[in-house]
Design a protein around this nucleic acid. Structure first.
Lengths: 143, 143
DNA sequence: GTTCCTGCAAAAGCTTTGCAGAAGA
DNA sequence: TCTTCTGCAAAGCTTTTGCAGGAAC
């Protein structure tokens, strides 16, 4: 656990959410790991310590967190929603070989276009796909 | 129909795909409308002229087109894949009010980051969300 | 004591698959 | 003629919903 239970409980109550054990565990997981898991990955990871945790609780928890602006949803592939506890502007890279999602910094101020003059922009997303350095290195070693 | 049947038939055979009536209709629809439909939208539109067209044919056709690099898949929301017949680099804006997807031009050359040095980038996507000009104007008129 | 949350099971959506008949090359 | 495609039905996945019991405040 990266921070104390009361630390996460405070965050939750500030957002008007009850600080249940399950919610604290989910929030802690996302804060500690800083990865980009799907709902199913979170469930699998937390089931080890909470065998009774249910899939629907994980889904409801994540949706509540997104509604409360505590998490961001990431949509790279159509068949999976990923979540992250990092509200700073940044881009995502998904490796087509190993499936891992990497963050990268990017200057969103450069993303200007006249085509959207008069539009209200609420959310900006960038994602790349390709092969990560680690997979490329492995390929070379195996050839 | 924007172009002739033989025009689309040629495109298909160049990609090694048989030029069936259904495939020509799907390709023509995407070329003529230049919108960002889901598989279901395409099915609904084409059913008027082809009542026997089946959902699985539309899905198989779209997947075959994507594999042949004839179309691009767009993933903005998790619960819907959209398709477009426009392989040029550009961004997408989805209006959270009316649901319409707009294209916008953007200089992808500006998207440089040191965080991905050594990575192989195959695909770059940008999408914004917000409220489009037309919905904003309507809001003002109704207040 | 209320209100909100959890967990089970069932339902809902979208997408894929298997297979027999039909159409394209 | 041979290969590939279509369309129906069924299956597969992820996500959502309804509801009764339980936990938080």
């Amino acid at each position: 656990m990266k921070n104390s239970t009361s630390y996460y409980a405070k965050i939750l109550s500030e957002k008007g959410l009850k600080a249940s054990h399950q919610r604290i565990m989910v929030l802690d997981y996302l804060d500690s790991h800083r990865c980009h898991p799907t709902a199913d990955m979170i469930l699998s990871a937390l089931k080890q310590d909470m065998p009774t945790l249910s899939k629907s609780t994980v889904y409801k928890t994540l949706n509540a967190f997104v509604d409360a602006n505590l998490l961001r949803e990431i949509t790279i592939e159509d068949n999976e929603i990923r979540y992250e506890y990092n509200l700073m502007d940044h881009g995502h890279f998904k490796c087509e070989s190993c499936g891992q999602v990497y963050d990268f910094t990017i200057d969103f101020g450069l993303l200007k276009t006249k085509d959207l003059d008069g539009f209200q922009i609420n959310d900006r997303n960038i994602y790349f796909k390709g092969v990560c350095k680690s997979c490329l290195d492995n390929e070379q070693n195996n050839v």
